[in-house]
Design a binder for these strands. Structure first.
Lengths: 193, 193, 193, 193
DNA sequence: GATGAATGAGTCTTCATTCAT
DNA sequence: TATGAATGAAGACTCATTCAT
């Protein structure tokens, strides 16, 4: 391996470590300070600045690191070449299977309070592909014919809403399956022609 | 009036003033500091501590003061003795008519970022009465028979979702009416004829 | 005394204390930090920010506090209604009598390194009145007729130059008088008999 | 070439490179950090410490490297075997012709603010030879008979003063020539018997 | 009770210096 | 010898809280 590659690898390793540290802190709901990040990483405060220009930069990187996998997984489903109906079901399934990530994502978004940013991200990651999907479903006559962005919002609300409030409802595995069935029944009844 | 009553009245007056100050600051999107609150109120920083133990206490009070009117207005509609169907339509209408309040409420929630708190409040203010409403509608055979909390979440998502993203969509008055029509068309499909 | 006056007095007292602290530190040639200023004053770091918005503000105040007396004393001499010749001799005398202040002033200027600022201050305090003085002397036919600003610079250089380098020259009281005589002999040659 | 000589040559090469880097940075008015020096040189930060014990050491070397040419050029003029009067005129001319260097020198001095050092350098480079020149001029009966060091200071002040303040005066080429003429007239009038 | 000056822990950021490779 | 990542001491600034008047 060349020296350059080694360096890049090491660089990436430390950055990953930093991301992990921030994630841990977010999960613990502790406030994110450069001091804290360094301590959690077990490196010196100054070292953080060898990897990132400043806190904003660092948080931006963490942001991307957290969002990218979600963005990708959603995009893979929502933008595939399958039938719109199929994709919708797959999307709903995926939401049920990644709910832990999703909860983390939501908490992160709330920590990183910036209305503009949140809406932008939500829009980029889920709403835009979902809106495209809805448009295609409507064109094919599979979905009810309302404005596609409204339809997308409604689907998002119907699916994500119950997921977000799950931790409040005391639920077991079978409950989760029951919830899924109910959501599917609603989707079938409301969305599909 | 007794001295005690006078004191209570004065106490309430100042607290109201403090709440207003915080609201003003949130609207201006300025960061909420004890110093700033005192300055906005026109009282001394130290005096705040005569009314509240600490900042958390103060913010808790503001929290309640902001939420109570929304809670009440929602409760008045959702818990009235009218027909569930009627109440549902009234609720949806109310959401469309108070959207300014609602935006303020959302901004406040983002300032006061605390996952636990947000969910709790949302639950108290809207979801519980809405769930009760759904239960009654289902029992009466008016709404499709799924778990009432899921139905409530779905309705919430369908109605609030598009509202939250409104600032992003470039919209005019007629757009708003179009959105309302679309949402109503979706909601109607919940209802069993 | 009213409460307001008392407050103003106290405010001024603390600011004076801060100025003194900075002066002390400059004399000691120690680097001027907010921490150090606070320590030297015997007050808390945060308190400095109750009196000044930031370090720049504080240093600006110190700047003025140091310069004002010098500015005033120079202005009183250079802008008086006396004969230009008389004023010139008085100015030279004054330079010899305040040389301790002047040395402190020069050291301060070097600490506060900002070319623009230094030149501006020097210009405001000494060069402008001195140039006016020269212009009047030339008009009256008392001084040799060259550009007044150049003449002013030359006088400044002739008088201040030797003063600045005094600490290097091992000198005694009588030396100082000898230097003064020499400078005066040079200055006299500017004057048209 | 022996290995030792090779090493010395290399050492000198790198040091020259470092001096150039610092000069460049001073001209750009950017703050001089070890990191920046290394980056500008294209060598590693750690390597600087193979050539210099610490930053102070490095800056001292740069100091000498910058001053030496000025010192030499001044010395060549002031210490030549020509007539004192001729040398004085050559000195004044040289000041007018090297004003770019001089400005760089002044900026450097302001960066390297240290009263002691400045006075020492000024003394070494200009004042000592100028004082010698004055002494010779006085002995020859060409210059006015005051203490040679005072005379030197006065000349320095008369010539350098206007030069230093030049950037303030909005001046064109012809202005510069006018200034030169005025200064020469003053010198002739005041200094020369 | 009201006041607001004083406090100091906590936050981000810079940079000279060290040291393992 | 060369490298540059790691270090940590400083530095400027913020802000919730206390307390003497």
């Amino acid at each position: 391996m060349t020296a350059v590659k080694k360096k890049e690898l090491l660089d990436h390793l430390v950055k990953t470590q930093i991301v992990d540290a921030v994630m841990t802190m977010i999960k613990k709901n502790s406030s994110i300070t450069m001091d804290g990040i360094a301590r959690t990483c077990g490196i010196a405060k100054g070292s953080l600045y060898n990897y990132f220009k400043n806190k904003e930069d660092l948080m931006g990187y963490v942001h991307q690191a957290i969002l990218e996998p979600i963005r990708e997984s959603k995009s893979m489903i929502l933008d595939s070449r399958k039938d719109p109906l199929t994709r919708l079901y797959e999307f709903i399934d995926s939401v049920f299977h990644i709910n832990e990530d999703l909860h983390f994502y939501f908490r992160f978004m709330e920590q990183e309070r910036s209305v503009a940013v949140e809406k932008k991200e939500r829009s980029d990651i889920v709403m835009q592909p979902l809106t495209r999907l809805c448009r295609q479903g409507i064109e094919k006559g599979q979905f009810i014919d309302v404005a596609p962005d409204i339809l997308a919002e409604a689907i998002y609300g119907m699916v994500i809403g119950p997921m977000k409030s799950l931790p409040l409802v005391s639920y077991k595995k079978q409950n989760l399956e029951k919830i899924r069935q109910d959501i599917l029944r609603l989707i079938e009844r409301i969305i599909i022609v």
